[in-house]
């Protein structure tokens, strides 16, 4: 079989693998964003022991390879009573991993908030919660959006590693295809094309959103409608 025939033959398998990859990435991202936002918010509470725990979480996750974290959860987990399916372990690990990076980005976002805008809001008698969701979060989102996107893109590449714990993603399917057909190049080509298109889509889409988000800061563009 030539390369195209091989790929055609394995297309259903590869597509299902691609689906799993996208799915784990999406779930991992959402989980990571939730964890990151929560950790960043909790870090603002003046509770010392909590600060330490969160600090350690961030340091450990950012200081060790993703592969190690994955093994620890999936293979080491059962010995402390955490038994997860490969898919669940993979998603949880992606989320916990990205969460540490998101937490740092959110923290920087909070610290970079212009104090005056918040002061203005409280001078009118807005509540802390109103200030958070009407003023702080939108302003922060604009500022940290590019960093969020770059974490999302790195995360898309970490998904490859889930194949090691038998999550049937694209990498996993490519490996089985390679083993069965001895056609290493087809697999590499499939992976390369997929990740290139994937990352390109995320980047393009993000650029579009970023353009919308920062419209207000552009002096040249047309007026908006209220």
């Amino acid at each position: 079989m030539n390369m195209l025939q091989t790929l055609w033959h394995y297309a259903p398998l590869l597509l299902s693998g691609a689906g799993v990859t996208l799915w784990t990435w999406l779930l991992g991202s959402v989980l990571g964003l939730a964890i990151g936002a929560s950790v960043a918010l909790l870090r603002r509470l003046p509770v010392r022991p909590l600060q330490w725990v969160l600090r350690i979480y961030i340091e450990i996750i950012r200081g060790t390879p993703f592969l190690l974290q994955l093994f620890l959860l999936y293979s080491g987990g059962p010995s402390i009573g955490i038994r997860l399916s490969a898919l669940t372990a993979g998603v949880v690990c992606l989320g916990v991993h990205a969460g540490a990076y998101f937490a740092e980005v959110f923290r920087a976002g909070f610290e970079g908030l212009p104090k005056g805008q918040i002061e203005a809001a409280s001078s009118f008698g807005m509540t802390s919660f109103q200030i958070l969701y009407r003023i702080s979060l939108p302003t922060m989102l604009v500022a940290i959006f590019p960093s969020i996107v770059s974490i999302l893109i790195s995360l898309s590449k970490e998904t490859v590693i889930l194949s090691i714990i038998t999550v049937p993603n694209l990498m996993y399917q490519v490996q089985s295809m390679t083993v069965e057909t001895y056609s290493a190049f087809s697999g590499i080509a499939a992976l390369a094309v997929f990740y290139w298109v994937f990352v390109e889509c995320v980047a393009r889409f993000s650029a579009l959103i970023e353009y919308r988000l920062t419209l207000f800061a552009r002096r040249d563009s047309a007026e908006v409608r209220a």
Binding site: E119, A120, G125, R134, T139, F216
Partner: peptide, 16 residues
């Protein structure tokens, strides 16, 4: 506070 208007040197409008 809501009956007291405060105007800042740096305006402090909400840019978004």
């Amino acid at each position: 506070r809501r009956d007291i208007g405060f105007v800042f040197q740096q305006f402090n409008l909400w840019p978004h």
